[in-house]
Amino acid sequence: MLLAFFRSKQVKWLPRSKFSLNCSKIGGRTVRFSIDVIGQALVATMDGDLDLHTCPQFKEALTEALAKNTQVKHLVLDVRNLSFIDSSGLGVILGRYRDVQARGGKLIFVKANPHIKRVLRLSGMHRIADFVDSPTEALERA
C-alpha cells in the first residue's frame, strides 16, 4: 500500500507532504532537511553536517512531526547527502529511535556513505537499524 501510494505520485524523489519542514542554519556548517510522512513512515532527507550546533533544529522538527503524526511507526533517514555526523547528531537520532521503537517501528538509513556508516557502526547503531540503498527499499521494509 505504501509503495502504491509512493508510485502514484509519479515522482523520482520523495513527495513533500503538508508536514514537510525545511530548515537551514547559517554559520559554521549547515544542515538542511525535509520531513515527509508516507503512510506509517516518517521520511527525513538530510543534507550537510549534523553536529552539536545543527542538531537542535533537526531534533525539534522530528519531535514535532512524530507528535503530530501518531500513525507513524517507522523513521526513515535518507542520509545520502549527509556529509558529516558526530555523537551529538547520533544522540538525536537515538532519541527519536526510542520514540518509534515504543510504537513498534523501525529505524532505517538510506544510502549511508562509508564515513557515516563507520560512525553508526562505532556507536552500535548498526545493531538496531536497517541500512538500505533506496527510499523505495526503505518503504518496503517499513
Binding site: 558526530d86 555523537s87 551529538s88 547520533l90 544522540g91 538525536v92 537515538l94 532519541g95 562505532l122 556507536s123
Partner: peptide, 13 residues
Amino acid sequence: EERMGLGLTFMRE
C-alpha cells in the same frame, strides 16, 4: 539528555 557518552571513545578510535 541525549548525550551518548561517545565523545572520548570516538576520539580514541
